[in-house]
Amino acid sequence: MSTRIICIANHKGGVGKTTTAVTLGHGLARRGKEVLIVDFDPQGQSATFLGINPSADIYFVLASRIAGEPRGPDLTALKQRVRSSGRKNLWIIPGGTETAIAQTTIVALAKPVSYIADVLKYFTGNGLHYIILDTSPSLGGLQERAVWASDYVLAPVQPDYAAAQGLRQLITTLTALRQEKGWGGTLVGVLPTLYDEQTRETRAEMKDVTRAFGNLLLPPIHRATILRECAAEGLTIYEKDPGSRAAREYEAVVDLVCSLA
């Protein structure tokens, strides 16, 4: 099986992108898949959610191609940027505030949309089944390139107007990348997160999302305090309470990803 790249994206922040990236990554790893999480968010929270320190590793990975050395980057140095998450089969290239510098440089040098895809080629293969890209909540240069590098995009959305607007902008970006830049991937689903069916606004928003996305709408992840506790303790939901509702709901997402070609 070739390495599948899955991008977790939404132009709105705080919708559960990092939680989804980390939980999906660990869920796949628990099923024996080799998974690499790449954190393109300058907040660097994928690492902290896994209980490890954020670092400038993704900055160095991105910067390795900026210089444009004729012989290419030092592969050994590049692969040393892959850190163990402390979990079996789960690896991470952490990000940090330095990621924003790399983003600015890439945009200033007008690097092509395939820039991240070219960087990730150094990591694909080697028995790696999935690369999960956690992206920043804005179009600043990195997110479009991360989407372009991916085979599948998973869009978490909190059922409120602002998050829906971010999702709408993401769909516009995906369509544009497909039509204008020849992106070969697709949207795998819209994942409602922080779901709370008790409010009328949530129900109304879900109705709109359902009407717009139909089969692409995935079963929701309910708002759960345990997920916030996981972030605070540096554990995934599978470590904290694998029998919880949140863990079961994320298992459905893992099932979906495993069923993809």
């Binding site: 599948y152 769909i171 516009t172 995906l174 369509t175 497909r178 039509q179 697709t186 949207l187 795998v188 689903g189 717009a212 996305f213 089969n215 692409l216 069923s259 993809l260 070609a261």
Partner: peptide
Amino acid sequence: LLSHLPPPER
């Protein structure tokens, strides 16, 4: 817009 994106292959 979604009509421009292919359905995910299973």
